[in-house]
Amino acid sequence: MLSFLLRRTIHTIFVVFIVTIISFLLLHIIPGDPVVRILGAHATAAQIEQLRHELGLDQPILWQYIHWIWNVFHGDFGKSFIYHEDVGSLMLERFPVTLYLVSISLILSTIIGIIGGVISAVKRGGVADSLISLFANTGIAIPSFWLGIVGIYIFGLKLGWLPVQGYTSPFGDLWMSLKQLIMPVFATSVPNVAIVARQTRSSMLETIQQDYVRTAKSKGLKQRVVLYKHALRNALIPVVTLVGLTLAFLIGGEFIIETICNIPGVGRLLVRAAMNKDYLIVQGGVLILGTAICIINLVVDVTYGLIDPRIRYK
């Protein structure tokens, strides 16, 4: 187990490393010059050259990357062009917001998805199954940004039930914070709930047919015990894998929702930075999110072994 964790950690570092290289390259390939962005359209060639030199942008890309990663190892993520602030502290300020939203969405959508899928499988062919399946099929097809926009329009502007946008810390005003949270969490969770519910349903239906479920019944166990002890635990094995995968999905949706709902998280910061070619922010964000996704996947892999004793970590 320990050697597995160690190997996976080295693996994770390697993956994050490659991800930063790719994003670094991509940022330099896409058109647009950050220096022109900073100085404006009327800057002289000399001024541009001067700033470019100051920022180290006149160096070869490889050198720039090495320079960046070297600084990162020393805790320096660089300075943002547009915010004129340290990227590290910008991230630190916004990361908890994104983490807060993503965790709530992930936990909520997983729980609701599993419950929905189980109900759907157990009451197969019934009204509940039809409704849940219908929701699951549409939910997968609806992108979160659309849900976000429509939600804001209906519940924010027309009905006035929810705040249109913004973010309040739950430690400041919990009630306001929750009200502002409903829309973005709903928008990012719906596709996730749908995916998890579908997987749980099919996995549960398959498990119910297994011989060991028949054995459990033949022992005289209550239907409830047969379903929720014997069948569900087996049915959850593929669901756990899926939850790990949907996380990346969830973070993607989070970026857009933060932008739409004007939430000061890493997502909005990154979207803005990418548009302005504030590449140090993008690099820092990619590094943090990449690491976060890798860690969650590691957690998922370990959870997998907790549910299924046939899996051993070597």
Binding site: D211, Y212, S218
Partner: peptide, 13 residues
Amino acid sequence: MIFQEPMTSFNPV
């Protein structure tokens, strides 16, 4: 009851 399939008749978890 004793069933035919010893491989699959016990719950693996």
